[in-house]
Write a protein that binds this DNA or RNA. Structure first.
Length: 314
DNA sequence: GCGTCCAGGTCTACC
DNA sequence: GGTAGACCTGGACGC
């Protein structure tokens, strides 16, 4: 929109960082509020800052050690807001995560030499644990297309709206991910009828109410001192979050002790190692035991390996 | 057009 | 601690 302020800045990234490999690390990159503009080669999102200000961001790879952030906002950002935006971008892209130990393990494994070469391993996440958990709940026991429908509805019907223009100059409306307080203000009937969340509806509302009311501090999980096993227990204590969702939530918190196996991974693993025949989860767990605290990440590297051959895998 | 199955699982009741 | 059965929804598939 012509009334928006548009600016850009750069963020330095470590030498083992690969922008597109991080964006395409899993399906989150195509779930709203995230989007990918293949023509402009940007990864986009509407962020809501701590101040409440909405900022539409387009990120692209600039140099091997820098990413370029172009942002639009209705009024300029204060230095504090700009710092807040930078922190959020660095958090979602895992810019400051230390991958040295992971890469040193991968370097010693013949099957994973490609991981170092392609700088894979950083898994994209949401700015908040709340958003990651809601999205994970919405991936359970359904097709990916239904997950997209639920998340499209959550953002489009409950998120904040922002008007911008696309690469061709056409008007474009984008939405933020709704905060816990907003989600908590809707009832189960709305979640079922409008969001199409089905039986997940009470889980989503319960979690939103607990977060909004302060009964649970999800973002404290980001820097928790708890041993991984205890944190896993804490996450699975949330209604609707079982071993699959918790295992993957922990990966997004930088802890890779759990595999977070689902039907897609099970099928993929079997195609790679067992000629597509049905196998037990114990067979999968046996394969990754050797990777210790990184087993969940090596598992994910294995099942997504074919994505890394393409710039835009999906 | 209609019924069935299953997908990026989890919960509860019961043993 | 292990497991059968129930659970929303939408899309694919067979008939």
């Amino acid at each position: 929109m012509k009334n928006n302020y548009s600016h850009h800045f750069f963020i330095s990234v470590p030498s083992n960082f690969n922008f597109w490999r991080t964006v395409y690390s899993h399906g989150w990159c195509v779930l709203k509020p995230y989007s990918i503009d293949k023509k402009a080669q940007t990864f986009n999102r509407l962020f809501e800052l701590e101040s409440g200000k909405l900022v539409f961001v387009r990120i692209k790879a600039a140099t091997p050690t820098k990413i370029k952030v172009t942002y639009e906002v209705k009024s300029g950002l204060t230095p504090v807001e700009k710092k807040n935006l930078t922190q959020k971008i660095k958090y979602i892209l895992r810019v400051d995560d230390n991958f040295a130990e992971f890469y040193s393990v991968a370097k010693k494994k013949k099957d994973f030499l490609w991981v170092n070469k392609l700088k894979a391993g950083r898994m994209l996440r949401s700015p908040s644990v709340f958003e990651d958990l809601i999205k994970l709940i919405c991936t359970t026991n359904c097709s990916w297309s239904l997950t997209e429908i639920m998340i499209n509805n959550l953002t489009g019907k409950l998120g904040e709206r922002f008007l911008t223009v696309d690469a061709e100059g056409n008007n474009l409306e984008v939405f933020s991910f709704p905060d816990p307080k907003t989600v908590a203000s809707f009832d189960e009937k709305f979640m079922r009828q409008e969001i199409r969340a089905g039986y997940r509806s009470p889980y989503i509302i319960e979690l939103a109410k607990k977060v909004a009311g302060g009964a649970i501090d999800l973002d404290s999980f980001k820097n928790s001192d708890l041993p991984t096993k205890d944190l896993f227990k804490k996450v699975t204590a949330i209604k609707g979050v079982g071993p699959y969702a918790a295992g993957n939530m922990l990966k997004l918190l930088g802890r890779y002790d759990y595999l977070g196996i689902d039907s897609w991974c099970r099928t993929k693993f079997s195609e790679i190692y067992k000629y597509g025949i049905k196998i037990s989860d114990k067979t999968i767990e046996k394969r990754y035991k050797q990777f210790g605290k990184f087993r969940g990440l090596f598992f994910w590297m294995d099942v997504t390996r074919d994505w890394y051959r393409q710039k835009f895998p999906f």
